[in-house]
Each structure stands twice: as C-alpha cells, then as structure tokens.
C-alpha cells in the first residue's frame, strides 16, 4: 500500500523542500521505500537539497511527456538505501504538469513498490500547488511561527478540504498535520514570534513536530545533505522525531523552551 503525502504551505520560503527532503530521507532510513518528487516546475531546488543536482538527466516533465520512462527519471540516493528522487524541470513551466500525467507517474511508482511518495509542493495556491496535492492521501503543512505564514497555511488547509481527489469523490478531508519550522523559543519569549500553542489554536490541526531555527539547516542545504542526516544537530533530531511521529510513534516535543538554563537545557536537549 502506497501512501502519497503532500508537503505544502501556501507561503514560500518556509521550509517545504527542506521538510520534504528530511521526511523522505527519514522514512527511507527506517527501511520504507520512498520517492520524493519536486513539483516546483521551473524553480527546481529539491535536487540541490538532496545533493543530486549533478546527476539529473531527466525530470518529472520528461517522464510525464514520455521522453523518458520512470526508471530513467528516478535518481537513486547514494547515502540511503530505498530513497529515490524525481526532480523538477527547470526549463518548463507549470502548465506542463497535467493531472493525467501526474497520475500516471504516481501509478508507476506504486507499481515499483514505493511505500511513500512525498510530493514537494510549490508555494502559492495555483495550479502547481493544486496538482501536487490532488492525489494526496495525507498532507504535512509547513508553517513558520508568524501571522502571514499561518494565514496562508490556513488557506491551504481550506483548499485541501475541497480540491483533492478524495474530497472531490466525497471521501472527506485528507488528514493534515502541522510542522512548525524555524521556531525560536527565545523570540517567542520576547513576543516576536507566535508560540506553538498560538499556531495550534489558529490552525486546529495535529502537531507533527517543531523544528528549531538552526544553522544546521543552512549548512545542510549548502552541503546537499538533508538535515536529518546531521543526527547531532537540533534540527536533525527534531526531524527524526517528526518522522517517528509520522509513523505513529508517540514522542514528546523538544526544543520548545529557550535554552538558557545551561546544564538543564543540555540535559533535556540531549535526552
């Protein structure tokens, strides 16, 4: 049984691609055969974050158009077994994505025995984002703790409840969970950021995880290794927790309080 997961947000720059890469890598690390697809046609980034940009031959649009078959389009990750990447096209625009074409690709991946397909959605609420979400069984909504990001996530949640295939077939809303990224407990304490509770209260969905603002994320992007592979970093640990929760494990949320107590903070941070 394949599960299709859309990673979406409405707003740009909140960490969708970082999250898609981390989630896909984390699932594959746990032995689940996973493909992560970059739906941001025209602005491809996922291959950079995944560190496979120098191995891209074909892309999603090539596969949809039949220029290449699925096996040729998929890039196998060198670090993690069972992890595949389907990059976006840099030269085409979003009109190249058709629902029929995307469905064909997803069916092909199912036949290959993928357990999870992670769809990295482009920002916005236009065709690209709708196409990425249409076939999803589940959504991960990435939000930063600030009002405009939260409002855009709210808008996306509304769209998900009516514009997915499941919703159109009357099978109800797809489950959606919240991943709060770039969280800075210090700034929350100073009142410069919304708290986890504020965001949960506004969006009224389950919390999958809180990823702290971290230099490790930038380092990971620059080095082309998903941050979850940096298992010593706070962000890496937080993503690891989120993956565990995604698979049904119960784990307490970490990195929610300012780390100023020295020893205590370290003890809790390292638990």
């Amino acid at each position: 049984m394949t599960k299709i997961v859309v990673v979406t947000s409405g707003k740009g720059g909140v960490g969708k691609t970082t999250t898609s890469a981390a989630l896909a890598t984390g699932l594959a690390q746990r032995g689940h055969k996973t493909t992560v697809i970059d739906f941001d046609v025209g602005l491809r980034n996922l291959d950079l974050i995944m560190g496979c940009e120098r191995r891209v031959v074909y892309d999603l649009v090539n596969v949809i158009n039949g220029d290449a078959n699925l096996k040729q389009g998929l890039i196998k990750d060198k670090r993690v077994e069972d992890l595949f990447i389907l990059p976006a096209s840099q030269t085409r625009d979003k009109d190249a994505l058709t629902l029929e074409g995307v469905e064909k690709v997803l069916e092909g991946l199912k036949e290959m025995g993928m357990e999870y397909i992670i769809c990295d959605s482009p920002a916005g609420i236009e065709k690209g984002a709708l196409t990425a979400a249409y076939f999803a069984d589940e959504a991960v909504v990435v939000t930063n703790p600030e009002v405009s990001s939260v409002r855009d996530s709210d808008r996306i949640l509304g769209i998900l409840s009516s514009k997915t295939r499941k919703a159109e077939r009357g099978e109800g809303d797809i489950p959606a969970s919240l991943l709060l990224t770039r969280y800075s407990p210090e700034r929350v304490e100073r009142g410069e950021m919304l708290s986890v509770e504020d965001v949960k209260d506004i969006l009224a969905i389950d919390l999958l995880g809180v990823i702290p603002e971290s230099q490790a994320v930038l380092n990971a992007s620059n080095s082309g290794a998903p941050v979850i592979l940096d298992s010593e970093s706070d962000a890496g640990k937080a993503y690891e927790d989120a993956v565990a929760r995604f698979l049904g494990e119960q784990r307490p949320h970490r990195f929610l309080t300012a780390n100023k107590k020295g020893l205590f903070g370290r003890l809790f941070g390292a638990q």
Binding site: R151, D152, D154, R155, L157, G158, I159, S161, A204
Partner: peptide, 26 residues
C-alpha cells in the same frame, strides 16, 4: 463542525452554527 478556513465562505438561509474555529479571512 469543521474549521472554517481563510478564503472559505459559508451561507445559511436560516441560522448558522459553527462548532470549530473560524479563521481570519473566512
């Protein structure tokens, strides 16, 4: 009984009862 999200509009020809949050922009 579902949250009313930003951008959504609900119209009732009689009374309207909402049991979930109504977001900014709804």
């Amino acid at each position: 009984d579902q949250p009313v999200r930003s951008g959504q509009q609900i119209y009732s020809r009689g009374d309207l009862i909402v049991l979930a949050p109504v977001s900014t922009g709804a």
